[in-house]
Nucleic acid binder design. Structure first.
Lengths: 212, 212
DNA sequence: AATCTCAAAAATTTTGAAATTTCTTGAAAT
DNA sequence: ATTTCAAGAAATTTCAAAATTTTTGAGATT
């Protein structure tokens, strides 16, 4: 039986985004090989591709590491995300049409549904990945009509790096954490649908500033 | 004798940045292997790393290509570069000290020297790579005191992609092409040293707007 | 003429092992 | 006690060949 490297890629990506590896932990192809039943070089190949996204650090002649986390890096990622998302949203507001509004409404509706369940606080851990997917879909829809493929692609990379930084950060998802998040998402979608770029930029900033 | 892949990396990078490959041309490890006297896998490895920078397109199961060029992509790269460089320069102006001013002056001095020779138009082609290096050094120094490693790294990638788009574009380096460029660089450095962030942003925009 | 099938050719991916480099360990010297 | 150095261990890189997938193109079918 032959191995499909896309499965390895996706599994490693998921593990990196859920802090299954300690930040900065070495990722040795020879070790991971066993778990996936493939050769070490196949793992190496996958890790090189993951380093493109920024989830993995690669240094020539000294291998791979799960990306390190630190307050500085967290701030850096958050700051960069704000730059990209405010610009992308501004352009989307200019370019997007009715179809975009509909898609954004849909994505926001789903996200709010998930967040209302999260706010109950029953099994936050388990629903986290569902929420994460919904959140990503919402934010990517927000900037989807920005006419720069480069910005959208970079944003996608930054988003996963942002999440990687978040998951390895101890936080209390106290009762009103998701309620606050929900209000912030509401402010973003309201401003976007009202075509108020300035308000939208401010809402994005307010949403992310806690990470600065 | 064993091959050092960093040499292959650098040679391929140079060739990609000087349009030695046609835009969109397939880059087959098995073909390039011979020229470098290494195995096809080593070339594959290098191409994967180059795809991280954006010089090479990689699609799973269908190999590598020199990045395609088009007016749309050129505009996209230019627009993104403006976004990053204006932001980076603004932060540098805030954070940079005397040391930064000195480095920027030095980089600008060298660049101007090269450009004055280029303006004579004797052997533009040969001096192009010298100019390119000086230009890159100047722009990277400009944003070097921005406190976001992520922005600086992304800018470095975008710069080489920008150059890749430029070189495959037919232009006349008419007598006053480099004179205009020189004036634009002067405006940028003047604004930066005067700590006038608004003027600097405008100067950067004016420098790059011809590519929009 | 256009579309479809399918075998041959070409290209990519994977493998397992060899070659090389980096890291570790512990004894000898300062 | 600290530093230096060499030998061994461990990890990374490279190789060449095998396995797999994609592309090509000739011949058959509509």
């Amino acid at each position: 039986m032959r191995i499909d490297s896309t499965e390895i890629y996706e599994d490693l990506q998921r593990r990196l985004m859920t802090a299954a590896f300690k930040p900065g932990e070495r990722l040795k192809p020879a070790d991971l090989q066993g778990a996936y039943g493939c050769s070490a070089n196949t793992v190496r190949d996958v890790l090189l591709r993951l380093s493109k996204v920024g989830l993995v650090d690669f240094e020539i002649q000294r291998g791979f590491r799960a990306r390190a986390t630190s307050p500085e890096r967290r701030r850096d990622v958050a700051k960069f995300r704000i730059l990209l998302e405010t610009e992308g949203a501004t352009q989307s507001i200019m370019n997007g049409g009715l179809e975009w509004e509909a898609e954004l409404s849909a994505a926001h509706h789903k996200l709010r549904h998930v967040e209302q369940r999260m706010a109950l606080g029953d099994n936050v851990e388990q629903e986290m990945s569902v929420w994460s997917d919904a959140e990503r879909a919402f934010h990517e829809t927000l900037i989807s009509c920005c006419d720069s493929p480069l910005l959208r692609e970079t944003y996608a990379n930054i988003y996963v790096q942002f999440r990687q930084q978040m998951v390895s950060q101890k936080r209390d998802f106290g009762s009103n954490y998701f309620q606050a998040i929900t209000r912030e998402h509401q402010a973003i979608v309201d401003a976007a649908l009202a075509r108020d770029a300035d308000a939208c930029r401010k809402a994005i900033y307010d949403h992310l500033k806690r990470n600065l």
